[in-house]
Design a protein around this nucleic acid. Sequence first.
RNA 1: GAGCCUGUAGCUCAAUGGCAGAGCGCCACACUGUGGAUGUGGAUGUUGUGGGUUCGAGACCCAUCAGGCUCCCCA
Length: 422
Amino acid sequence: MKKTIQTVKGTREFYPEQMSLRNYIYEKVRSASQAFGYQEWDGPFIETIELYAAKSGEELVKKQSFVFTDRGGEEVTLRPELTPSLARMIAAKQGELTFPVRWWSFGPFWRYEQPQKGRTREFFQWNIDMLGVNSPEADAELIAVGAEFLRSVGLSPERVRIYVNNRRLMNAQFDALGISDKNRLDVANLVDRRSKMDPEKWDAYALELGLSQPQIDGLKIMLSDFDLWKQSDELSRTFSALDAMNVREYIAFDPSIMRGLLYYTGTTFEAFDTSGSLKRSLFGGGRYDNLLEDVGGQPLSGVGFAMGDVGMGIFLQEAGLLPEFEPSPAQVLVTVFDEKLWLESYKLGAELRSEGLNVMVYPEPAKLPKQFKFADKMKMKAAVTVGPDEVERNLVAVKNLSSGEQVIVPREAAVEEIRKVL
RNA sequence: GAGCCUGUAGCUCAAUGGCAGAGCGCCACACUGUGGAUGUGGAUGUUGUGGGUUCGAGACCCAUCAGGCUCCCCA
């Protein structure tokens, strides 16, 4: 390595092993989405900054998006999230789509962040949304899709939990405590940090925001009341529906879940890894009522969530839940005996492929031990050899690489023999 | 955008300011019709990059790049 050109900071290189993990997550995401009847879709990877300026946070637009000027002088950005594109696309065809719309997507996003573990500048994200139905049961369905995904990758309720809360319930609580609208965002932020901050610092921060001691005490009581959801008809119905959908064990009410202060208006939820000492967020979402209007559509309510591939990948790996990596898509190696029989091996390989097997032929007449070692490293299951003896009598030698047993069979029986080994 | 830690062989890591090393992996051979084991031998490299201090720098200083931790943020 004389001279190397570095990758762009925060980008990711997918060697085959990482690519198989990405594809594994994609497959599970697709299965969970399709099991509930959601359609796959996607938007542009490049958008104008105005799309996000409308209602995404200032932090996102000004500091955390990849913005640059194209050759035509237009300011464009690599998409940092999908929901605004979704809102625009729905609004554009609002009159012709069949509602309720159930859509999901899995694609790349970019955010200009400080890279650290679990956080890169380039990542893949699963987005899934239902639009056109505004009900606690619809909220429950989205949560259930998330829960079924968790179940499908082998994550048990002991390991991961989806915490659910509701903005309207919280607003009612804030009203009861006499917390002004002006303070609402700050207080929501305060509530969100309850579990992340030292209790003493949390108190000090609360005082800083101008809350009175009775208000702070009231908040604390509220935050430790895990039966609070019973006061909310919405959440009661959502939890009943989750029970019916057989995912209730993955769900818990948590009054400190606030999330997206920007456009969530009803139920919000967030999945956490509960196995470690610190909670790691795995996905989150909620109901949004005003998104379509913001991009010029007719009022339309929706609910959805998003999950990044980076954190989920690390979590699955640490939990020992990754499927074993198979280096070679071909489980069969045809060896090359010597230069004279080289093309005979290619011929055999073609025959086996025509029978539907994935077959790799060693690319040169190397020593057989070397070829077998290669098959081992690639974790292949069978090696097939045609040497002078076999060719003469129209035979092939099929070796089971895990047991070490080799049988010599007529060439026509090779496929059948190989299938026994796979 | 701010602070701190780290960067040495393909990988994991050693080396008081004084000859750059080990284990694993890799390659070759033992073994010219068969892998996983074992043995023997071999190659690892501009110590992230660029400056500086010093007789002498992997080590100390400055800058820079990267990724890790924290703040921020988490749409």
